[in-house]
């Protein structure tokens, strides 16, 4: 995304707004996707995504090379933060969702799904930020290279980080399972 330096003063504002719109169009879906993996709530995920873009637009150039990586990272961390902060509130909401679930066609299945989803989110919230971010970025559809860029680590480390994070999450979920 090169910018013509000579015409800068006349077109800079336009160019950056255009660049921001292009960035938004290209990345909004993925940023929501990452947040949605964490929050399992499309509306809240959109909230997070919009805050992330507003923050970005405020401080950075949309034509910066690091723009997508910054957005992905911020999406993971903001939504994980929200998850941790909202854990108690979410417990209540999930309890409600379970009640509603009981009225659907296949109550038993719905109940299990909600319960699983709640347990996984709680487990994610208990994990350290970096492994949790690796998991949700990868689950959000990012390639190894994109996950590496978002977290500022070498691409060769992603396999190891991912494996370790999966192991941790599996144990955390098991730990949170009532006997």
């Amino acid at each position: 995304m090169g910018i013509n330096l000579g015409a800068r003063h006349m077109t800079a504002a336009r160019t950056d707004d255009d660049a921001f719109q292009a960035l938004f169009t290209a990345e909004y879906g993925r940023v929501v996707g990452i947040a949605n993996r964490v929050l399992a709530d499309p509306h809240e995920a959109e909230d997070v995504a919009q805050e992330v873009f507003i923050d970005f637009h405020r401080l950075h150039s949309a034509s910066a090379d690091y723009a997508p990586a910054w957005l992905h990272r911020a999406a993971a961390h903001s939504s994980l933060n929200r998850l941790r902060g909202a854990r108690r509130r979410q417990k209540r909401e999930f309890a409600q969702a379970i009640e509603e679930g009981e009225r659907t066609l296949d109550p038993q299945k719905q109940l299990e799904m909600d319960e699983d989803r709640r347990r996984v989110r709680e487990a994610l919230g208990r994990m350290a930020p970096k492994p949790a971010a690796v998991l949700v970025l990868r689950a959000g559809g990012l390639s190894y290279a994109e996950v590496a860029q978002a977290l500022g680590v070498g691409i060769s480390q992603i396999g190891t980080l991912l494996r370790r994070a999966e192991d941790t999450l599996r144990k955390e979920v098991t730990r949170g399972t009532p006997n």
Partner: peptide, 16 residues
């Protein structure tokens, strides 16, 4: 493990 975690993290797609 990878596929069971993928299942755990699966969510209905957000339509934006």
């Amino acid at each position: 493990d990878a596929s069971s975690i993928a299942t755990l993290l699966a969510v209905p797609e957000a339509r934006v």
